[in-house]
């Protein structure tokens, strides 16, 4: 297990393996998402209170979940990079940021579009759930800005890992905001006390799995680019690119 892990963490090995692995995550991911979207849009019954607007849950909840999941991956791999000095883990952190920002933006937009007909407002300043999710978006932007502002990759890795660790506090707030304080946002349903009919819940779980797989593929792809860039002066990259059959 450890041997396998160490091998995977070696850049040339990872570069080769990730290209093979990514489609094995992306294809099932897209199939599951397509199936769950079809279920969510046309098959699942509408909600007794919200009518068809409830169908937005199938894209809103997975994107909100990924917005936090990507952040936790970014922060923990940054911490691993700080402590164990594993080069690959900083590449993972750098790769997770833009994907996380994308899904945070998506969670905010779909939430807002859901909120307009249901709550009666696009956005409410001062609501803890909405504010903390917005801060999460700015944390991602700050993280990416900090990275691109520092030219020295090693320094950028360290500074951004510290920023990511500080920001974990906000992810905890996003998660518990609806429990700790009063909020316009409803409480948790998927893994908590709320109830949801099985024929509504199962497509949501499939959607969550599909999003996770797709996220994994996107992350692998980006780590691969990051590894290539970081290893640009090494022999294996030189040999791969100048080899007669070429790389990719």
């Amino acid at each position: 297990m450890w041997k396998w892990f160490h091998q995977l963490a070696s850049p040339p090995h990872f570069y080769r393996i990730s290209a093979i692995l990514a489609p094995w995550l992306a294809v099932p991911g897209v199939i599951l998402i397509a199936y769950a979207a079809w279920q969510g849009l046309f098959v699942v019954p509408m909600d007794y209170q919200q009518g068809d607007a409830f169908r937005i849950i199938y894209v809103h909840v997975p994107s909100a979940y990924l917005s936090m999941m990507a952040y936790m991956i970014m922060a923990t791999s940054g911490a691993i990079g700080l402590i164990w000095r594993i080069k690959l883990s900083h590449a993972v952190a750098a790769a997770a940021a833009p994907i996380g920002a994308g899904f945070t933006f998506l969670a905010l937009c779909t939430g807002s579009i859901w909120g307009k007909p249901m709550w009666g407002t696009w956005w409410e300043w001062g609501d803890p759930r909405m504010m903390s999710e917005l801060i999460l978006l700015f944390l991602y932007f700050g993280y990416m800005a900090l990275r691109s502002a520092i030219d020295d990759t090693t320094k950028a890795d360290k500074a951004s890992a510290v920023l990511a660790l500080v920001g974990i506090v906000n992810v905890v707030i996003v998660h518990f905001s609806v429990e700790w304080w009063s909020s316009l946002h409803q409480g948790q349903t998927v893994f908590k006390k709320g109830t949801m009919d099985a024929d509504m819940r199962i497509p949501l779980l499939i959607m969550l799995l599909g999003f996770t797989l797709l996220f994994g593929a996107m992350l692998l792809r980006r780590i691969r680019t990051e590894v290539l860039f970081r290893e640009r002066r090494t022999r294996w990259v030189r040999e791969m690119i100048l080899s007669p059959e070429g790389g990719a």
């Binding site: 068809d52 607007a53 169908r55 894209v59 833009p98 994308g102 779909t110 579009i113 007909p117 792809r221």
Partner: peptide, 26 residues
């Protein structure tokens, strides 16, 4: 989809746009 069609479709459409955009950028 009743009265909420525009809201629902725009959410699903935006999801597609973001996923395609992220993949294209990568």
């Amino acid at each position: 989809m009743g009265d909420y069609g525009a809201y629902v479709w725009s959410c699903y459409g935006l999801t597609l746009v973001i996923v395609v955009f992220l993949s294209w950028r990568a």
